[in-house]
Design a protein around this nucleic acid. Structure first.
Length: 159
DNA sequence: GCCAACGTTGGC
DNA sequence: GCCAACGTTGGC
């Protein structure tokens, strides 16, 4: 089992949006970065836990727990000329972009902010926190995952 | 294969 | 809105 952190801008698609989906599941479309694609294509397994992270918001941070909900399959938005994610270099015969479905798993009692994560000794090596990292999908270790989940299940930071 | 130009991400 | 970081593109 692998653990993941996946970023989303809440203005575009939030954790609340995921919960509000009829089956609480959403295809993670629009990823146009090869490293992030490779994680979905090669390393994710159905049931892998995901830290759902809100970026480009105030404050940024982990807002909830999701999980991988499908095998990898081609990103249909790449073939859709009307989609903002359209990529003429991807075609159904030889798809370039691959995604998985992501499903709601559990709420946290509160947001675990980026600021707070930076203070947590368990997260000092965490890939998503490294300087300059912009990957929208990164692996996290089991210990990192559990430290963040535990913090999010407490009512207030540090208590 | 190099690298300058350009585009995007995301914290602030 | 700014800008550092970094990925991609394309000329050579």
């Amino acid at each position: 089992m692998n653990y993941w952190l996946m970023k989303s801008e809440p203005d575009a698609f939030s954790f609340e949006d995921l919960k509000a989906r009829p089956k609480q599941t959403e295809p993670w479309d629009g990823v146009r970065n090869y490293q992030a694609r490779n994680f979905m294509r090669d390393a994710m397994k159905v049931g892998d836990p995901i830290l759902f992270y809100h970026s480009n918001t105030n404050p940024p941070g982990v807002v909830g727990i999701a999980q991988v909900a499908s095998e990898p399959y081609p990103d249909p938005t790449a073939f859709d000329k009307k989609s903002k994610y359209h990529d003429p270099k991807s075609d159904p015969v030889k798809p370039r972009w691959i995604l998985v479905d992501v499903a709601f798993k559990a709420d946290l009692k509160r947001l675990v902010s980026l600021d707070e994560m930076k203070t947590m000794p368990e997260l000092s090596e965490m890939r998503a926190l490294q300087r300059g990292n912009r990957l929208s999908i990164t692996p996290v270790t089991k210990d990192e995952f559990q430290a963040i989940k535990k913090a999010g299940m407490r009512k207030a930071p540090g208590t």
